[in-house]
Amino acid sequence: NQASVVANTLIPINTALTLVMMRSEVVTPVGIPAEDIPRLVSMTVNRAVPLGTTLMPDMVKGYA
């Protein structure tokens, strides 16, 4: 099973992502692959992402 990116904290809308905000976890449904974490750093989220939420491609500006 592939690990996905999961919010390690509440990420407010329009926040630039940092490494400490994200962790990898095997979850269903599958979200952004964990190997993309380095690429996500400094990208911003377009909605509030609660703790434990899987990051989906449409949640990160410029990812999809």
Rank of each mutant, 00 (worst) to 15 (best):
A16H: 15
R47T: 15
T9D: 10
L40M: 05
R39W: 08
T15C: 05
V27Y: 02
V60E: 02
A34E: 09
G52P: 00
T54H: 03
T28Q: 08
L51M: 14
V45Q: 01
K61Y: 13
G52K: 04
L40F: 00
T28N: 09
V30E: 15
V45E: 01
P12N: 15
E25T: 09
P12M: 10
T18R: 07
G62C: 14
G31N: 01
V20E: 15
M56P: 01
V5T: 10
P38R: 08
L17Y: 00
S42C: 15
D58K: 09
V49K: 01
I11Q: 00
T44A: 08
I32P: 00
L10R: 08
P12H: 12
R39S: 10
M21Y: 06
G52M: 06
L51A: 11
L55W: 01
V41Q: 08
N14Y: 14
V49A: 08
N46M: 14
L51R: 10
Q2P: 14
M56W: 06
I11T: 00
V27N: 03
L17W: 01
M21T: 04
G31E: 01
R23M: 07
G31Q: 00
T54D: 01
M56Q: 15
N46L: 12
N8I: 05
S42K: 11
M59I: 05
M21A: 05
D36Y: 07
N46V: 12
M22R: 00
T18Q: 09
L19Q: 11
R47V: 07
M21S: 12
K61Q: 11
A3M: 08
N46H: 14
A64I: 13
L40E: 00
P33W: 06
A34C: 07
R47E: 09
G31Y: 02
A7N: 00
V26W: 08
G52C: 04
T9Y: 10
Y63R: 04
S42A: 13
D58W: 08
P57A: 13
I37S: 04
V60M: 04
L19M: 13
M21G: 03
I32M: 03
D58F: 08
D36E: 12
A7L: 03
Y63S: 05
Q2N: 13
L10G: 11
L51H: 14
